[in-house]
Amino acid sequence: MLKKRIIPCLDIRDGRTVKGIHFENIQDAGDPVELAERYMSEGADELIFLDITATVEKRKTLIQLVSQIASVVQIPFTVGGGIQQTDDVRSLIDAGADKISINSAAFLKPKLISDIAAIFGSQCVVVAIDTFFNGEDWYVCLNGGRTPTDVKAEEWAKMASSSGAGEILLTSMNKDGTKSGFALDITSRIADVVSVPVIASGGAGNPEHFFEVFTKTKATGALAASVFHFGELTIPLLKQYLSDQKISIRL
């Protein structure tokens, strides 16, 4: 039986793992290669690395980091941050990344999704969507959460999926860093309308939150960062809990 995936996310800035709340108040959370190895040995099903300060001059550092990670990690991993064109994808895939994640660039130019999928296959294209609830509905936000748009997250997710995305990584900005549980409503709505796997992100605080998102939505993966980085939740205990609750999980 196919297993639900537990995915630690490492936000990378200047080669270090960092974590903020509501995308702000950034704190240092350790060496990404060491953390990656630790999460793999603890039973993480995949890893995601998002370079939050990816600029032209920092690209080489990121590519070196990706190849260091690839040489010690034997589970699938996704790399995102600053990808603008298919050449950026090639350098990350050649360095050992299994998938790449695109966010604002895909929203501004949806053809990027089909271009990457045509060369590298849909399975390697993760479209990341940052969404915020404005009191009425969930809307897409760009540039690491700094630029709101008037496009509904559900509409963009449908379009990204039909453009060739292999996966949707859906982050609720209202929930990010709050440890109050995943945004079940929008995760459920999007997972119901797209034909690709959805990874829920933002708000993980305790094992029950993971149980909720796997039972109340069709998300096939759940992502968390700070609860893992700061040791509040360990992957073995989380996975044992989910398995005891009859969630299909890899132990």
Partner: peptide, 10 residues
């Protein structure tokens, strides 16, 4: 079901 078959399976 979702295709491609993606993830950990026994």
């Amino acid at each position: 079901d979702l295709v491609p078959h993606t993830g950990w399976n026994s």
